[in-house]
Design a protein around this nucleic acid. Structure first.
Lengths: 150, 150
DNA sequence: ACAACATTGTGAAGTATGTTCACGACATGA
DNA sequence: TCATGTCGTGAACATACTTCACAATGTTGT
């Protein structure tokens, strides 16, 4: 949607364009690393340490059955291993292999680099103002979603 | 990733959170309308008028073969119809049905409402500053992508 | 201790989105 | 007309999702 008067894209259009560009950049990075988006997301969750598949399912907002498939893929590519849970014999701890940890490190570095690409050119004050407004926008959106669908 | 000193999320984290929330909101809206994300995206492109599947493939950045499948789905749900191209007998014009046009109208309205949810509470000056910074960020990201992968 | 119940992960089966490859139908330009 | 390119689709496949059923295991109440 564009402004009826000027034909300029609205602020929302700009945000959606940013979303699109970020998604594209991530997809390219993941592909370069031999990962899909879903598997990269799972790996990203693992930077907090080993967790059960149930926890992964909640973190990724998908069904436990789907996590089984994603972990299968990452096991096959050697990024992740299944370990027994120390106290719960039903559960499985998904842990990073050395290769997985190394890949995750490059992802973390890429994350930092992306921050620099996006915000490195801004002044201290500009960044602070932008963050303040952005925080408000995000909070407002989150509150809207919570109101509307719990 | 969080700031090492304070544990606060970075500006990039906030942006990614916004991405996630927007995606979730859209998904919910699409589902309510009986659409998937890919089909909704295709419908959205059609708000500019009927186009060939080739044009859709370029606009959606997917293969022509995939567009065939998406159009099949939208034909089955009655939102879209295939019409012959007036001059090129190879090509197909994908056109909105009445139901599709009605649905698209609600999507456009939702787009406007989203703009209001996100930015309605901002002052004129706040919105202008935010847009200026956002434009710079988007341009910088786009330039980076063009440099790196044409 | 033990029966009832809840939770964890996975097999089976299905849907949607996406790909590549091959090919027929058509357009286009020498 | 003949070579070459373009448009859409069949066939076959990969990935990411889902629901449903179920076995193995934890947990809780009596």
């Amino acid at each position: 949607m564009t402004d009826a008067q000027t034909g300029e894209p609205t602020a929302l259009d700009r945000v959606l364009e940013l979303v699109s560009l970020l998604n594209r950049d991530m997809q390219v990075s993941f592909e370069r690393d031999g990962l899909t988006e879903a598997r990269a997301h799972l790996l990203w969750v693992l930077r907090g340490g080993p967790v059960t598949q149930r926890v992964l399912a909640d973190a990724l907002a998908v069904t436990p059955r789907n996590v089984t498939g994603l972990v299968d893929g990452l096991v096959a590519s050697g990024h992740v291993a299944r370990a027994p849970h120390p106290t719960d014999r039903r559960a499985v701890l998904v842990t990073l292999t050395d290769a997985g940890a190394a890949l995750l490190a490059t992802m973390v570095a890429g994350h930092a680099e992306m921050h620099d690409v996006l915000f490195g050119g801004l002044s201290e004050r500009q960044l602070r103002d932008f963050r303040r407004t952005l925080d408000g926008v995000v909070d407002r959106l989150r509150r809207r979603l919570e109101e509307e669908w719990g």
